[in-house]
Design a protein around this nucleic acid. Sequence first.
DNA 1: ACCGCGATTTGCT
DNA 2: GCAAATCGCGGTA
Length: 186
Amino acid sequence: MTESAVVTYARGLLGRVLHGHDVAVRITEVEAYGGINDPASHAYTRTARSEIMYGAPWRLYVYRSYGMHFCANVVTGPTEEASAVLIRAGEVVDGIDVARRRRPAVKDVALARGPGNLARTLGLTLDDLGTDLLAPDGVRLGESPAGTPDISAGPRVGVSKAADVPWRFWITGDPTVSAYRRSPRA
DNA sequence: ACCGCGATTTGCT
DNA sequence: GCAAATCGCGGTA
């Protein structure tokens, strides 16, 4: 697998604020999924679930994982590639009281650590599938940060295919970033 | 229609 | 470190 536009989008999302339902986080960790060119992507095979990724960019792709969790992605361009960026972790910057209520007995730094936990903290569910993230209010993305954050890269968490492709990006040294766990099937 | 399994998380041994 | 929880998706029959 080679360099791709989705990598640029992924790195560019770090540091941006993602507004959920009454809670907002500063994105600290993401993973790039290269769509039709990426065996690890849900869009590698076009199905009802992955159809959203073949559509317009800057919309929200939410999927259910292991029956009980939701994971949130930003669909990116170019449209023909059906690529998307998984939001893996963030730092709560607004609505901290609501966030704590949704995740009882969890330290603030871990409120949005891990994709399932992040979606839960933001109150995101399948109801938010397809949301336009550039809309003026509701679930949306904020402006890009002023400075460029210091970014580290490594292999993606939990994927059994293309397990060595270093398409996971995080803000170096940020305490909210999740721990790396390789898929047992990789 | 059936069966296996996952871009996960949590808790217990 | 390992297994359970839990269910819709996707491949196969």
